[in-house]
């Protein structure tokens, strides 16, 4: 049995919906460091951007997801002392991979989306490690423990249903099974 959401919002709300996603993502990127610092959970990487990206991919909105991944990656690059394009590439490349797998996945199932979000976080760290090792960027990233990455993936994955539910509410979507 699942919860079905229908607020009857039409397609005209799309602009508002996507503006809201972009605004939320922008705020998340800008304030993320401050929030984790204030809460004292800097050792765990709770990144909400993958949740929004997986949501958009699930809605078959490739172009919007690609744009969001690229520009939020660039914004992250600006606010981090790293080369411009590092996070933009990471997000875009993982999104490309996820998109390739989409034919085997059922995005209407919340568990699939949760797993994808968790996978996204693990893939992000793995890809960053690979990029830093292969390309001579002159920078190093911390040797984060596997356990930290797993906890980060788990927490981010668990946040996903709540955010999906909220986004579905705003969008008036009614075909997701939250069971």
């Amino acid at each position: 049995m699942g919860i079905r959401v229908n607020l009857g919002l039409g397609k005209q709300k799309n602009v508002f919906f996507h503006a809201l996603i972009w605004l939320t993502c922008g705020i998340v990127v800008i304030l993320r460091g401050g929030i984790t610092h204030l809460i004292g959970i800097e050792w765990v990487d709770i990144d909400l951007i993958p949740i929004f990206l997986i949501y958009l991919i699930g809605q078959d909105q490739n172009f919007r997801a690609g744009c969001l991944a690229f520009f939020m990656g660039v914004l992250t690059d600006i606010f981090a002392p790293c080369q411009l394009g590092l996070f933009a590439f990471t997000y875009s490349a993982i999104l490309l991979g996820v998109n390739y797998c989409r034919q085997f996945l059922d995005f209407t199932k919340i568990r699939t989306s949760m797993l994808l979000v968790a996978f996204f976080v693990v893939a992000k760290w793995s890809l960053l490690l690979i990029i830093m090792s292969i390309f001579p960027l002159g920078q190093r990233i911390p040797s984060i423990s596997f356990i930290s990455v797993c906890i980060s993936a788990l927490i981010t994955g668990m946040i996903a249903p709540f955010l999906f539910y909220f986004l579905d509410l705003v969008r008036g979507k009614e075909n997701r099974d939250y069971a």
């Binding site: 996507h18 809605q59 078959d60 909105q61 490739n62 172009f63 919007r64 690609g66 744009c67 991944a69 690229f70 990656g73 660039v74 690059d77 080369q83 411009l84 394009g85 590092l86 933009a88 590439f89 875009s92 490349a93 999104l95 490309l96 998109n99 390739y100 390309f135 960027l137």
Partner: peptide, 24 residues
């Protein structure tokens, strides 16, 4: 922003970010 676009849009963003990365 049409909703249904071919998959190649992702390649554009990957290439764009690679260009950014190499330029910076």
């Amino acid at each position: 922003f049409p909703e249904h676009r071919p998959k190649w849009v992702f390649y554009i963003f990957v290439i764009l970010s690679l260009i950014l990365l190499s330029l910076s």
